[in-house]
Design a protein around this nucleic acid. Sequence first.
DNA 1: CCATCTTTGTGCACGCGTTCACAAAGACAT
DNA 2: ATGTCTTTGTGAACGCGTGCACAAAGATGG
Lengths: 255, 255
Amino acid sequence: MATGRTHRPATRSRGIPEATVARLPLYLRALTALSERSVPTVSSEELAAAAGVNSAKLRKDFSYLGSYGTRGVGYDVEYLVYQISRELGLTQDWPVVIVGIGNLGAALANYGGFASRGFRVAALIDADPAMAGKPVAGIPVQHTDELEKIIQDDGVSIGVIATPAGAAQQVCDRLVAAGVTSILNFAPTVLNVPEGVDVRKVDLSIELQILAFHEQRKAGEEAAADTVVPPVAARKQQPSTDQGPDGDVPAVMPA
Amino acid sequence: MATGRTHRPATRSRGIPEATVARLPLYLRALTALSERSVPTVSSEELAAAAGVNSAKLRKDFSYLGSYGTRGVGYDVEYLVYQISRELGLTQDWPVVIVGIGNLGAALANYGGFASRGFRVAALIDADPAMAGKPVAGIPVQHTDELEKIIQDDGVSIGVIATPAGAAQQVCDRLVAAGVTSILNFAPTVLNVPEGVDVRKVDLSIELQILAFHEQRKAGEEAAADTVVPPVAARKQQPSTDQGPDGDVPAVMPA
DNA sequence: CCATCTTTGTGCACGCGTTCACAAAGACAT
DNA sequence: ATGTCTTTGTGAACGCGTGCACAAAGATGG
């Protein structure tokens, strides 16, 4: 991602930092909630609180999209919902295929958050012939043999891999060869893909390990309370909008 | 580095950058695979390729743990597996409770990656009385009423929330009140927690939206192929170790 | 014991992302 | 109109993370 950067009409997209893009869905969710409550406008302060971020950061994020706020008033909820949706490409239909209909694949298929955001499950695919035809979430599972045909017929560009680790790379290769250019990988493997294909991974095991690290650290400090730092015990019970030690990575949202 | 080193047993933990911690599980996975193949040593170059990262980054990451490599040779696989496991706190047992046994909760319960890394499912909890007693992944589901007792009896410090968004904050509050200090949240909500409690979130919807953004950007550039930049068409089919537009966030690993 | 070759560990510079702090913009009341 | 008050949009400083490039460490062979 550093090829020709010299000129180019600043597709604007390039102008939006990756970190900002990752937060837009968060804002969109908060805004949608406000919209449903018929709230007409929000200040950056309020919206930031709802999304769990810093208000200055939120304003800067929005500034990349343009000047959609009104000083002294705030942001128009409906307008902002539309602008962010458009920026994220959610105003169009995105057919998605899910490969690997095990426990997780089924959970994803049943997940209601798909349709609500422009995503449509075009097909469920599994390698097990016994699964073929069996309906999951109202959609009949199809065999892997159909993969290429489905992708091409429906113009699918986003694929979700929920197979065992061993099958992931192979499935990935077939998806890419058939035309998929964005992959959400749930399998615990590093996927090799050609340039131009985006891969995002979601890994439960890694998340747990990171939590374990911090948990151990807390326990250690508590036990060997040697320094002047007050032990974690003195923590207050009021909500603190603390969103973990990092403060970046995306979030989830199943059933 | 900076702070410690002067004296203090180098709680070391604080010295490890968050970004590095997030990559340790990745290295551990790659190392475990090598270990199973009885490979005695690896160079930073090889391991980096397997983990999908830059070799310099990997070496710097390991340097935070100590000098565990041998110049001219590489790293001892077994030794490194042990050191990273210990650093991440995986040498001890971590009882985990999963709250919300819907499709996703069941998928998580069935996920084999738990036990393999020091995590143990202490209990499955659901608010639906009809679920009570019903075995999922060989473990009987218990009612929410038992939550506090289970957490205290088993000394659970890590909780997984797989409930609908509406119930998440309430469940979170109860988990925290009962003693949980690390939460993995799958519900599409911003959780408010007291200081000292870590929250990590996994959000499928957000991941898909980020992919959609990039997908749209690609489509746009392709259509308006105005500049000198070669269209995505000329992409090569060889694996490029390209891991998406970002290059940071963790990975997944279900069934 | 010395020379050579490999690979680590890290100093350094660069760039992105975050946050502060404030000027400018606009609403609203008088 | 004019003044006041609220809230945006952003310039600038700071800190973290990344990657280069190389010196030092150690293995290996003669």
